[in-house]
Simulated scan of single mutants.
Amino acid sequence: MTNNSFYAIIDKEALKHNINYLKNFKNKNILPVIKANAYGHDILLISKLLYDLDIKTWAVARLSEALDIIENFKKFKISDYKILVFESIENYKILNENPNIFPSINSIKEFKAALANNIETERMSLKIDLGFGRNGILENEIESLKKLAKFNDWKFFGIFSHLFSATYDDGLVVIQKFTDIVNKLG
């Protein structure tokens, strides 16, 4: 047996069925996370397949992944998609040149820098760190964020957190904490 003795078959109809099942289960849209080369399934293949299935918004971990997708989609003359990037992006030139990239904002400092570099809030997603030691806006920064937003009519692409590892009961506490923060921000 060689190292190349395995392969995966991506069944477009099965993927379509699974997407529709997930969307209908809670009557919500989905945001596929295709980081880490679509978990080994080829990020360029999967992003194009999702696009063809009318799923035009995805999340990746790294800016480099988003740039690879953008470069690939130029071949297809496709421009109506969005890529949420989880990592902090400090290269505002790249953000301004690539409107398909939707940055995660991981601190008040990043938020202010993004505003100063003309990144529209409609492209930003606020990541909240709920104590798992990951990146994100800290709970004690929420009041500062609320004060900043008080005199502005900002609309964001999204707000999210990362529930890294928790027991069921602890998970419920964290989800309630997140809900309280979202309600506090309005």
Rank of each mutant, 00 (worst) to 15 (best):
N4D: 08
Y7K: 14
Y7M: 11
Y7W: 09
I10M: 08
A14I: 15
H17W: 11
I19K: 08
Y21L: 09
K23G: 08
K26M: 11
I30P: 04
P32M: 05
I34M: 02
K35H: 09
H41Y: 12
I43S: 01
L45I: 11
L45H: 07
I46P: 02
S47T: 02
K48L: 15
D52G: 14
D52S: 14
W58I: 15
V60E: 12
A61Y: 14
D68I: 06
I69A: 07
I70N: 10
I70R: 03
E71M: 07
K75W: 05
F76Q: 13
I78T: 10
Y81M: 10
K82L: 09
N96C: 07
E97W: 00
P103Q: 11
P103Y: 07
A114G: 08
N117V: 05
N117S: 05
N117L: 13
N118P: 01
E122R: 15
M124C: 11
I128C: 05
G131W: 03
F132S: 05
N135H: 03
I137G: 01
E139H: 04
K147D: 13
A149C: 14
A149T: 14
K155C: 06
L163R: 05
L163G: 03
V173L: 14
K177R: 15
T179C: 08
I181A: 03
I181R: 03
N183K: 15
K184R: 06
L185Q: 03
G186A: 07
